[in-house]
Design a protein around this nucleic acid. Structure first.
Lengths: 94, 94
DNA sequence: GGGGTATTTAGAAAAATTTCTAAATACCCC
DNA sequence: GGGGTATTTAGAAATTTTTCTAAATACCCC
């Protein structure tokens, strides 16, 4: 189960908020950090976890590292959840 | 955000496995425990967390407490995830 | 190359989670 | 009521997670 990591990653409020920020588009580590009252080191720690869970990926540009959402993994999670639902969810959408 | 609790609850592998067991139907605390190598006290701890997250509910019968899935909360989670997806997921299903 | 900014890594402290043992409740049934 | 089983609660130990500070990397641009 690779999504043990994904669920772990999603379990932290800070990381979920990071994902929501990235919903609007790529942001640099610094820009992400500016939304929180934590050191850059801590943000970097959270980004690493999101990265390992494949929920985000980075692209380097100039002196910055930009992060963006990787939505593909989210579908696996949705599938697992809808599976619990007895396959009886919106996902199956008549 | 009430689903901070839900995500936390889903982040543990034991608890996810409990949910999968319950997918097939209600089980008593003892029956659930028999699937794991942990004390009943530990299982009880996990059940409490799942209960607080509204992912399961109990019904008492005779000398047993039966647990079963509560799928309604799962939909909120799915909505949050599909929201990240830019609303661009199977859920919206055009 | 060298100063400057952006980000990460290392290591330790603080906080939260998971697990256990032992004891307490709760309920059944004779 | 009382013995018996099922489950939970309390408290402590072990483990994991989150956070910080300080230092290290990485890359830019003059």
């Amino acid at each position: 189960m690779a999504f043990a990591e994904t669920f772990k990653a999603l379990s932290d409020p800070v990381r979920r908020q990071i994902l929501e920020l990235l919903k609007k588009g790529p942001l640099s580590a610094g820009e992400i950090g500016s939304h929180f009252e934590m050191t850059g080191a801590t943000i970097s720690y959270h980004l690493k976890i999101l990265k390992k869970a494949d929920l985000i990926f980075e692209s380097r540009e100039k002196n910055f590292i930009y992060y963006q959402l990787n939505t593909s993994v989210l579908e696996e999670i949705m599938l697992w959840i809808s599976g619990l639902n007895g396959g009886n969810s919106d996902v199956e959408s008549k």
